[in-house]
Design a protein around this nucleic acid. Structure first.
Lengths: 338, 338
DNA sequence: CTGAAAGCGCTTACAG
DNA sequence: CTGAAAGCGCTTACAG
């Protein structure tokens, strides 16, 4: 069991009795440019490389060229989300497929505690796609500040630096959704129920778009924050019952709400018109008016964006929004004798 | 949008007004060994590194150290098997989890046509786990010949080189299975049905273990090869009906066989005792006597093995077999009035 | 047409 | 206690 001994350009050069510059040129198909090599020399080099089993050292190449056709995928999960049940799974599938298509291999990373900190592991690749990131991490901020090619899945802000991100086109679909619900807003009012959660960009964006379009349509919006168990109070329920129309920002709010409705004898789609602003549902709550699950597409877009950045394309001209399509379902179907 | 400009040891050293050797030592926590650094110097270095946003260059480290805590996972699939429906999915899950546990990141590779050939992409990592490999590839052979740390999932031979592999412990479980079926072998004979397929190590191993144990038990074995549609002839069916006991080497043979049985009015577990030697079933054919699906465990074992190799442990002392447990089910349940 | 040499960023044995 | 220097394997502008 001998050790792994690398066959280098040097050894091939020695074997073929040429300079290793020639070997490099021949093996990279770059002869004919700044370096030219005779036909027989070339054949001999090729033969020696094969015979010795030459394998180029990618680390050295990366060091020299600065590129190695590798994209890192980073999450803050304990375990990398390849499990089909994981909420990031479809992102990953989209990333995977698109990386493949664009000729990149994938380095999959997570937040395990380790000797080398995350940023250096990420920087082994040419660029990275970041999923579900905790932005408080100094290590990632450092990368952003140094302009390392990083694309966040979902809009992200980092203080004192400009970030690159792709996200869902919430604005358009939320507008459609409100317009769809408009006929049910007989009281001129609409209730928006939010999870009790840390304020993050997606949450803020969804709320803002909702408020914007409501205002434009002359609707009043009352915002309700659920408790830590995703439940709302009976008083708040009364408000909803009166307004007849409610929108929920996350899937987790739906079950408690449905239970409450049942207790009060309220039927969704008959007594109330409701919808949910959730991009990650799969099979569940199919009776709710919502939008399409486009996580695969967003993962794919992230890689396209990164890929374009790496090719030096102008970032500003790149698409960064994945369109969402409204799905009208029972909870806002044919309500109120409409 | 400025370019990604790497902050190097050099720049930190310049900023802190020390030699970059000191910076390296401090940043790696290696001061106190061959290199010692004063307390204030150390603090200043740390401060500068943070302020400038220093990120170590893993490629350079790998070049120097020869290690970068990366394990490659290679398959010959077109697309890397992270899809839950893929037959390699459970291998991958086991690999994933164990790599994590042992402090390795994963480089996921497949056989896409590319500029750099597979072997150089693999060699970027410290070692690799190979799944479902086509051994004819010269590129991989090269790696094996150079003693690059490669662990195959499933026994593999490569001409002129010794390979490392982990596999299922077919021998023990096949022995148990034959012993289990023994009481049903009233004619002293057993039929073994094989897929029509390229002869590979797993196939050969399963057959050999079966023949060995049969001989030991004084049983005659008749081997039947199915046709390209995994079907057997009526004559062959008659042979099975007479022997009363049949073992199949792959799952794919089962459906055609069940159809044939139905046509002939034969009931498995009543008229015939049957079993299948398949490690990749999931939910399907639960009525068949078979063994447990241990693909996750085998994936995990592959990484443990590789990990131990990389740590310089003696390979010969390493476990390389994942045990399989016999599952007795209806097809050999309470047959023949037993 | 071919080769010697610099340099990518790092680590570490070694000299001072 | 600290720094200069070699070298990991490669690519490429440049000199001959």
């Amino acid at each position: 069991m001998s050790e792994y001994k690398r066959v280098t350009l040097q050894s091939v050069a020695k074997e073929a009795n040429v300079s290793y510059a020639s070997v490099s040129a021949v093996l990279n198909g770059k002869d004919g440019q700044s370096i030219r090599v005779g036909k027989e020399t070339k054949a001999k080099i090729l033969e020696c490389a094969t015979r010795l089993g030459y394998v180029p050292n990618m680390a050295a190449r990366k060091l020299k060229n600065g590129r190695n056709s590798l994209i890192a995928v980073f999450t803050y999960e304990q375990i990398f989300p390849v499990d089909a049940k994981n909420e990031f799974y479809r992102f990953f599938l989209g990333i995977q497929e698109t990386a493949e298509k664009n000729g990149y291999d994938l380095l999959i990373l997570n937040n395990r505690p380790t000797v080398g900190n995350p940023s250096s592991r990420i920087a082994l690749a040419d660029g990275a796609v970041m999923i579900g990131v905790n932005r408080d991490d100094q290590d990632i901020v450092r990368l952003v500040q140094n302009n390392y090619p990083l694309v966040f899945v979902g809009r992200r802000e980092v203080a004192g630096a400009s970030t690159h991100w792709v996200t869902f086109d919430y604005k358009e679909v939320i507008s459609q959704m409100v317009v769809h619900l408009l006929p049910f807003c007989s009281t001129g009012k609409l209730v928006y129920v939010e999870e009790r959660a840390v304020e993050r960009e997606p949450r803020r964006d969804k709320r803002r778009y909702l408020l914007d379009v409501a205002q434009k349509q002359g609707l009043e919006v009352e915002i309700i924050e659920a408790d830590e168990n995703n439940r709302i109070t009976v008083t708040e329920m009364a408000t909803i019952a009166k307004a007849k129309v409610a929108i929920f920002d996350r899937l987790s709010l739906l079950h408690p709400f449905e239970v409450l409705c049942q207790e009060q004898g309220l039927v969704l789609g008959r007594d109330l018109a409701t919808a949910v602003l959730e991009d990650d549902w799969s099979g569940t709550y199919a009776n709710w008016t919502r939008w399409t699950n486009e996580r695969f597409e967003l993962g794919a877009l992230a890689v396209e964006y990164l890929s374009a950045m790496l090719d030096g394309k102008d970032r500003d001209s790149l698409p960064r929004f994945t369109p969402l399509t409204l799905i009208v379902s029972e909870t806002s179907g044919n309500v109120l004798g409409k």
